[in-house]
């Protein structure tokens, strides 16, 4: 049974640019999948459609039984609560502490204060930042900020974690640190992870399923560990 099902999806923007052509894809529960491709390959568009920032022009995207394309604008929060999203630029609230940033994701959905406290500390522990809960984002390194963002993304225990170039702003060493955190989440929580990246060394080292997009089309779909440093 596939957790994410993408059927005949085409995305054409209003300005006439077609970003995705007739994409078909299935991703199983608990998978860790890389999506790679150069600029303009449609990675970002695919991501935006997964978290329902954009709607597919044709075809459908089903995540855990929910037809994402059919969700109305004022009901978008329904899908957002089921998944966690991590961006290259972290997107933290600069005027809130590490703890507040993570707790925020639970507060806005109206969780109980006790639960918020427990889950927030648990998530921060998982990313190794329990000692910095009182700090503000600008007092942290890039890698630490990204780990806060990951903690915020997983704090409400989503089934799916979307990471859009999470290591894009980090040096290789910090990048591997982030990858270990993500691997850990994937292993211990069973969270399905989809991650886009430019960094080939990460993809090579991790030995996961790799989906290659080019000019809006799916060009290669490597099984786990079969990807071998190909030119993108």
């Amino acid at each position: 049974m596939e957790f994410i099902k993408i059927k005949n999806v085409t995305k054409q923007y209003r300005n006439g640019v077609t970003a995705i052509y007739d994409l078909n894809l299935g991703i199983k529960k608990g998978d860790f999948v890389f999506v790679i491709g150069g600029s303009g390959s449609g990675k970002s568009t695919l991501f935006k459609m997964l978290y329902r920032e954009e709607k597919p022009t044709r075809g459908e995207i089903i995540i855990g039984g929910l037809n994402v394309g059919k969700i109305r604008n004022n009901k978008v929060y329904k899908i957002r609560r089921k998944l966690g999203i991590v961006f290259q630029d972290y997107r933290l609230l600069p005027k809130s502490t590490v703890y507040e940033n993570v707790a925020f994701a639970l507060e806005v959905i109206g969780a109980k204060t006790d639960d918020i406290h427990k889950k927030t500390l648990k998530a921060l522990e998982l990313v190794g930042l329990k000692g910095k809960i009182r700090n503000y984002p600008d007092q942290l390194s890039g890698g630490e900020q990204q780990r806060v963002a990951i903690a915020r993304a997983i704090v409400n225990e989503p089934k799916l974690l979307l990471c859009d170039e999470p290591t894009g702003n980090l040096d290789p060493e910090k990048s591997m640190e982030i990858m270990r955190v993500l691997e850990n989440i994937n292993q211990t929580l069973g969270t399905t992870i989809i991650m886009t990246t430019h960094a080939k060394e990460i993809v090579n080292q991790m030995e996961k399923r790799v989906i290659v997009l080019k000019d809006g089309r799916l060009v290669k779909d490597y099984e786990k560990g079969k990807y071998a440093n190909e030119d993108i």
Partner: peptide, 17 residues
């Protein structure tokens, strides 16, 4: 604006925002 977009990302409903 950023704060509002983050609220939307983490699943806040429009009323909550």
């Amino acid at each position: 604006k950023r704060e509002i977009s983050i609220m939307r990302l983490v699943g806040a409903s429009n009323t909550t925002i």
